[in-house]
Protein backbone atom coordinates (compact mmCIF):
# COMPACT_ATOMS: atom_id res chain seq x y z
CA UNK A 1 0.00 0.00 0.00
CA UNK A 2 1.66 3.30 -1.04
CA UNK A 3 1.94 5.96 1.67
CA UNK A 4 -0.31 8.99 1.35
CA UNK A 5 1.11 12.54 1.51
CA UNK A 6 -1.04 15.67 1.70
CA UNK A 7 0.59 18.86 0.41
CA UNK A 8 -0.83 22.10 1.82
CA UNK A 9 0.36 25.28 0.12
CA UNK A 10 -1.46 28.33 -1.20
CA UNK A 11 0.79 28.43 -4.27
CA UNK A 12 -0.38 26.17 -7.03
CA UNK A 13 3.04 25.74 -8.66
CA UNK A 14 4.59 24.62 -5.39
CA UNK A 15 1.77 22.11 -4.82
CA UNK A 16 2.09 20.83 -8.36
CA UNK A 17 5.91 20.53 -8.21
CA UNK A 18 5.93 18.66 -4.90
CA UNK A 19 3.11 16.43 -6.16
CA UNK A 20 5.12 15.57 -9.29
CA UNK A 21 8.25 14.78 -7.27
CA UNK A 22 6.55 12.60 -4.66
CA UNK A 23 4.25 10.71 -6.99
CA UNK A 24 7.22 9.93 -9.24
CA UNK A 25 8.79 8.35 -6.16
CA UNK A 26 5.86 6.08 -5.46
CA UNK A 27 3.79 8.08 -3.00
CA UNK A 28 0.09 8.76 -3.29
CA UNK A 29 -0.32 12.51 -3.22
CA UNK A 30 -3.22 14.84 -2.58
CA UNK A 31 -3.21 18.61 -2.22
CA UNK A 32 -4.98 21.28 -0.18
CA UNK A 33 -5.00 25.02 -0.79
CA UNK A 34 -5.36 26.33 2.78
CA UNK A 35 -5.89 25.37 6.42
CA UNK A 36 -9.61 24.60 6.22
CA UNK A 37 -9.12 22.58 3.05
CA UNK A 38 -6.29 20.75 4.84
CA UNK A 39 -8.47 19.77 7.83
CA UNK A 40 -11.22 18.53 5.50
CA UNK A 41 -8.79 16.43 3.44
CA UNK A 42 -7.07 15.01 6.55
CA UNK A 43 -10.38 13.62 7.76
CA UNK A 44 -11.25 12.40 4.30
CA UNK A 45 -8.09 10.67 3.11
CA UNK A 46 -6.22 10.09 6.40
CA UNK A 47 -2.74 10.94 5.07
CA UNK A 48 0.44 9.44 6.55
CA UNK A 49 2.19 12.80 6.30
CA UNK A 50 1.07 16.41 5.84
CA UNK A 51 3.56 18.80 4.20
CA UNK A 52 2.34 22.11 5.58
CA UNK A 53 3.44 25.58 4.51
CA UNK A 54 3.69 27.73 7.63
CA UNK A 55 2.63 30.96 5.95
CA UNK A 56 -0.81 30.77 4.42
CA UNK A 57 -3.83 33.01 4.32
CA UNK A 58 -6.76 31.93 6.48
CA UNK A 59 -6.55 29.72 9.52
CA UNK A 60 -3.19 30.09 11.31
CA UNK A 61 -0.88 27.09 11.30
CA UNK A 62 -0.75 26.97 15.10
CA UNK A 63 -4.50 26.20 15.14
CA UNK A 64 -4.36 23.71 12.29
CA UNK A 65 -1.75 21.54 14.04
CA UNK A 66 -3.81 21.49 17.24
CA UNK A 67 -6.74 19.99 15.38
CA UNK A 68 -4.77 17.11 13.90
CA UNK A 69 -2.55 15.95 16.78
CA UNK A 70 -2.31 12.37 15.52
CA UNK A 71 -1.10 13.09 11.99
CA UNK A 72 2.58 13.45 11.14
CA UNK A 73 3.31 16.98 9.94
CA UNK A 74 6.39 18.44 8.24
CA UNK A 75 6.59 22.22 7.90
CA UNK A 76 7.68 24.06 4.78
CA UNK A 77 8.78 27.70 4.87
CA UNK A 78 10.21 30.20 2.45
CA UNK A 79 11.12 32.47 5.35
CA UNK A 80 14.44 31.60 6.90
CA UNK A 81 13.94 30.64 10.47
CA UNK A 82 16.62 30.44 13.14
CA UNK A 83 17.39 27.04 14.65
CA UNK A 84 16.02 28.23 17.98
CA UNK A 85 12.63 29.12 16.49
CA UNK A 86 12.63 25.91 14.48
CA UNK A 87 13.00 23.93 17.69
CA UNK A 88 10.11 25.90 19.16
CA UNK A 89 7.93 25.23 16.10
CA UNK A 90 8.75 21.54 16.10
CA UNK A 91 8.09 21.05 19.82
CA UNK A 92 4.81 19.18 19.31
CA UNK A 93 5.56 15.44 18.93
CA UNK A 94 3.71 15.02 15.62
CA UNK A 95 5.88 17.68 13.91
CA UNK A 96 8.53 15.54 12.30
CA UNK A 97 10.59 17.80 10.02
CA UNK A 98 11.16 21.28 8.65
CA UNK A 99 11.78 21.97 4.95
CA UNK A 100 13.38 25.24 3.93
CA UNK A 101 12.14 26.49 0.59
CA UNK A 102 13.52 26.41 -2.06
CA UNK A 103 14.24 22.78 -1.25
CA UNK A 104 16.54 20.31 -2.91
CA UNK A 105 14.51 17.68 -4.77
CA UNK A 106 16.53 14.60 -3.80
CA UNK A 107 16.84 15.86 -0.21
CA UNK A 108 13.05 16.21 -0.04
CA UNK A 109 12.53 12.70 -1.37
CA UNK A 110 15.12 11.22 1.01
CA UNK A 111 13.63 12.89 4.05
CA UNK A 112 10.03 12.00 3.19
CA UNK A 113 11.13 8.39 2.57
CA UNK A 114 12.87 8.39 5.94
CA UNK A 115 9.81 9.75 7.76
CA UNK A 116 7.38 7.32 6.16
CA UNK A 117 9.40 4.19 5.55
CA UNK A 118 12.19 4.58 8.15
Amino acid sequence: MPKVVLIVDDEEDVRESVRMILSANGFTVDTAVDGDDCLRKVNQIKPDLVLLDIMMPGKPVSEIIKEIPNTKIAFMSVVRISDARKRGLCSQPNIVDFFQKPFNVSDLVDRVEFILNG
Binding site: D13, S17, P102, V105
Partner: peptide, 17 residues
Amino acid sequence: SHELRSPMTPMKAQLQM
Protein backbone atom coordinates in the same frame (compact mmCIF):
# COMPACT_ATOMS: atom_id res chain seq x y z
CA SER B 1 12.54 39.99 -1.47
CA HIS B 2 9.87 37.70 -0.04
CA GLU B 3 7.78 38.02 -3.16
CA LEU B 4 10.84 37.32 -5.30
CA ARG B 5 11.81 34.32 -3.26
CA SER B 6 8.46 32.52 -3.50
CA PRO B 7 8.70 31.71 -7.23
CA MET B 8 12.20 30.29 -6.67
CA THR B 9 10.73 27.19 -5.00
CA PRO B 10 8.76 25.74 -7.93
CA MET B 11 11.38 27.00 -10.41
CA LYS B 12 14.24 25.23 -8.69
CA ALA B 13 12.16 22.11 -8.09
CA GLN B 14 11.23 21.83 -11.79
CA LEU B 15 14.83 22.47 -12.84
CA GLN B 16 16.16 19.76 -10.58
CA MET B 17 13.51 17.33 -11.76
